[in-house]
Design a protein around this nucleic acid. Structure first.
Length: 362
DNA sequence: AATGCGGGGGA
DNA sequence: TCCCCAGCATT
């Protein structure tokens, strides 16, 4: 099994290589001069989804204001939030305060000293628990953050979508295997994140000077830019449907939706899609056939707005009800046909249409 | 499993 | 612009 021994060899050398790299390249950061769990915890919370450059001055300010966890516990929450101002994700500050008080008052100031205990604290999730447990207490538990996903995906050529639960498990298991070979779990955890932050960067990683160049699958196959794979959260597409609801007595003009779009084979009213939101008939152009028909009728009520959220689209609809006189015998455009109220009821329709009918006609 | 939650920096 | 950043809590 050649591939297996190769993979194991790469895994075996991984942690020590990064630890050696770290000793040569690490930045001098204030929270790296302490093993005080309070300070490490504070730094980790500040750095959640936050770059070192942005978080560093805040860390200094907080340590000045609250040198110990008891100081933070006694502080006024508004004061904490003021210090936090500008960092974002303000629940972090509230959770910080809550945990500071809990540790001070309920745990007699003794900071939780294991991964499992740390996990129970407000604002401490899997990442932060692993970070504090390893940095402050030397526990051999691997951190998995955005840097780790990137480094592991590239070095080991893992193309799984990191936004999925199964991929997260895969990466966590690999990371936990890798840390077993580390000389010092605290150093190793710092090392892989520092490596991701300044060498194996999201764009333009410095592969030419990389100590893992020879074993990096991404480098060997030229896929640095493609890894890690992260599903783009497709922005919800905004669409604007203007529905002309033609009425004649108790009949309504409806058509079947055809073609490669939403609501295939469902029935709707005369539908005109616009690029921008509209609120009145006069704000957009009607096809000639439709315009001619509209002119013969009267707008019978204020336009009605409706919204329908699909997985990747938000349909904002406006319904304009036009009542036509019996004298109109024009052929209906756009494949529209007249349906009695009972027939309309039986047609398959999008919820958006059904809701409108219910709202308008009960 | 999906969302909401912030603000800044770099390409 | 878009993406990403030492993620977490809630539903």
């Amino acid at each position: 099994m050649d591939w297996q021994s190769d993979a194991n060899d790469i895994e075996a050398g991984f942690a020590p290589t990064l630890e050696a790299w770290y000793e040569r390249h690490k930045r001098d950061l204030p929270w790296r001069h302490t093993r005080d769990p309070y300070r490490i915890w504070l730094s980790e919370v500040i750095l959640q989804q936050t770059r070192v450059a942005q978080g560093k001055p805040y860390y200094e300010r907080f340590i000045d204001a609250y040198p110990t966890i008891a100081d933070m516990a006694r502080a006024d929450e508004r004061e904490l939030l003021r210090l936090w101002q500008g960092l974002g994700y303000y629940s972090r500050a509230r959770n910080l305060h809550q945990t500071a008080r809990y540790v001070t008052d309920e745990l007699a100031g003794k900071f939780p000293d294991s991964f499992q205990k740390l996990l129970k604290m407000k604002g401490i999730g899997v990442y932060t628990a692993a970070a504090v447990a390893s940095f402050a207490f030397g526990e051999r538990v691997a951190v998995v953050d955005g840097n780790v996903y990137r480094v592991l995906a590239r070095v080991f050529g893992i193309a799984d979508d990191i936004t999925t639960t199964t991929a997260k498990k895969t990466f966590a298991a690999l990371a936990q295997r890798l840390i077993q070979q580390a000389n010092d779990p605290a150093i190793y955890n710092q090392a892989i994140m520092e490596f991701g932050a300044i060498q194996c960067t999201p764009v333009l990683p410095d592969c030419l000077l990389c100590p893992l160049q020879q074993q990096c699958i991404a480098y060997q196959t030229g896929r640095q830019q493609k890894l890690p794979v992260k599903a783009k959260k497709s922005p919800v597409r905004e669409r604007y449907f203007q529905y002309i609801v033609f009425r004649n007595g108790n009949r309504i003009a409806m058509r079947e939706r055809l073609g490669r779009d939403i609501w295939q084979n469902l029935y709707e009213f005369c539908c005109l899609e616009t690029d921008e939101p509209k609120a009145r008939l006069s704000e957009f152009d009607l096809p000639d056939m439709v315009a001619g028909l509209v002119q013969q009728g009267v707008l019978s009520a204020e336009p009605v707005e409706g919204v329908q959220l699909l997985s990747h689209q938000r349909i904002r609809a406006v319904f304009y009800e036009i009542v036509l006189p019996d004298t109109v015998t024009d052929t209906l455009p756009m494949g529209l046909q007249w349906y009695s109220a009972a027939a309309v009821h039986d047609l398959p329709k999008p919820v958006l249409i059904t809701n409108y009918l219910a709202k308008r006609f009960g």
